[in-house]
Structures are given as structure tokens and as C-alpha cells.
């Protein structure tokens, strides 16, 4: 069976796994976005807390993904739960860091002007600081999504959902029938998803960045 025949014969399974992969990544990145922005907003005014938050997210990041997934089996078992937790944790770092950098990078005189004309702390954050930091935050989300797509493949190690299953099964029976086809299908699927996600983020960025600060 050549590659095209393989794709054709397994198209339903492959489409399902691709959909699973995309959906898992999207949900994890969304969760990381909410958590990360909340964390970033909570700490950005204090340099000490900012350093601490970015630092701990960085430490999480250095744990090899295979090890983290393995460690999560004990409390969470196999399947979806450990995969989602691990992916969300990895997606957190770029989002937290970019939220802090983005908010801290807003021109202080603008914040001063906002308070000077009578905006409350919350209004200043919502109407001035956040919109101005948004392009930087969105870049963090984009990086997080790319990261999650790649690491998502390893979730198959704990029987998680997605295209990782193709890659792991293929590698597991190397030399056997269809092993190369399986690995190739999983890998190419993830690459395609990555391109698709990136295109979507460009569009979202374009639509959500205020016109006055768009390049």
C-alpha cells in the first residue's frame, strides 16, 4: 500500500484524529489564555511578582514533555485528563510572559493621562492598557498554539487523543506494514494543522487589533 492508498483507506480515522488534535489544542490554548492573562494582569504592576510568575512558568517549561505526562498518570490516570493538563501548562508560559511584557510595555504617560482624566484602575486596564498590549499577548497565544500542536502528539504516550496515535503506532512497529505511512500521516497532519492555526491567528490579529496601532 502506498501513502495515498493508506490515506484513502483510513481517511475516516485520520480525519477524526485530526479533528481531535485540533480541538484539544484549541481548548487547551483557550484555557491557558484565560489563566495566563489573569495571572499576567494580577502580577504586572509588581516587578517582583512578575519575575516570579514568568520564572515559575519557565521552570514548568523545562520539564521534558514525556516526563511530565508520565508523572501525571499517577494522579490523573490515562487518556484525556493528563494530556489536557500538560498541554495547558506548556501553553501557559508564552502567554503569561507576553501578557506581562505587553502590559508593562504600555507607555506610562498614557496610563498617567488615563488616570488624570478620571478613569478608574479597572477602566484604565480595560480601555487603555489591555487594548494596547493585545498585539503582544496575541503573539504569545500564537506561539502557545504552535507549541501545543507539537507537544499534543506526545499525548498519545498516555493514550491521549489526536494524531500522536498514528506516530506512536508507526514508530512502534517500525519495519512492519504501513509503519512509515502511519508516522508520515501523523506528522504531516500536525504540520498542516500548524499552518492552518497560524493563518487563523493572523486573521484574528488583523480583526482584533485597533486600527490606530495596526502596522
Amino acid at each position: 500500500m502506498n501513502f495515498w492508498e493508506y490515506l484513502h483507506s483510513r481517511r475516516e480515522l485520520l480525519l477524526f484524529e485530526t479533528w481531535q488534535h485540533a480541538s484539544m489544542v484549541l481548548q487547551c490554548v483557550l484555557a491557558a489564555l484565560i489563566l495566563g492573562v489573569a495571572l499576567g494582569v494580577a502580577v504586572y504592576r509588581s516587578p517582583r511578582w512578575s519575575a516570579l510568575a514568568a520564572g515559575s512558568a519557565g521552570v514548568l517549561f523545562t520539564i521534558p514533555s514525556l516526563a511530565l505526562l508520565g508523572l501525571l498518570i499517577t494522579p490523573l490516570g490515562l487518556g484525556v485528563a493528563p494530556s489536557v493538563v500538560a498541554l495547558t501548562l506548556y501553553a501557559l508560559l508564552p502567554i503569561v510572559r507576553n501578557t506581562i511584557v505587553g502590559l508593562a510595555g504600555v507607555d506610562r504617560t498614557l496610563v498617567d493621562a488615563a488616570r488624570g482624566i478620571g478613569m478608574s484602575r479597572a477602566a484604565t486596564l480595560a480601555r487603555v492598557e489591555f487594548p494596547l498590549a493585545w498585539p503582544v499577548i496575541l503573539t504569545g497565544v500564537r506561539v502557545a498554539a504552535q507549541l501545543a500542536l507539537g507537544i499534543g502528539a506526545i499525548a498519545a504516550y498516555v493514550s491521549g487523543p489526536g494524531l500522536g496515535e498514528q506516530i506512536f503506532s508507526g514508530l512502534g512497529r517500525l519495519g512492519g506494514a504501513n509503519s512509515v505511512n502511519m508516522t508520515l500521516a501523523g506528522t504531516l497532519g500536525i504540520v498542516l494543522l500548524a499552518l492552518l492555526f497560524d493563518g487563523c491567528f493572523l486573521l484574528v490579529g488583523r480583526l482584533t487589533t485597533p486600527r490606530g496601532i495596526r502596522d
Binding site: 493621562a113 488615563a114 482624566i117
Partner: peptide, 22 residues
């Protein structure tokens, strides 16, 4: 303070206009 500032005009160097608003 927020209420007070709404009734005091405030102009700073370089104007401090918000770049994302018309």
C-alpha cells in the same frame, strides 16, 4: 479621586492621546 479628576481638565506634554482611539 476619580470623580474629582473628571471635573478637572488635564493636559500633558505630547498630549497623551490614546493611539488606539480616534
Amino acid at each position: 479621586p476619580t470623580e474629582l479628576r473628571r471635573h478637572i481638565g488635564y493636559v500633558i506634554q505630547d498630549a497623551g492621546l490614546f493611539p488606539h482611539m480616534t
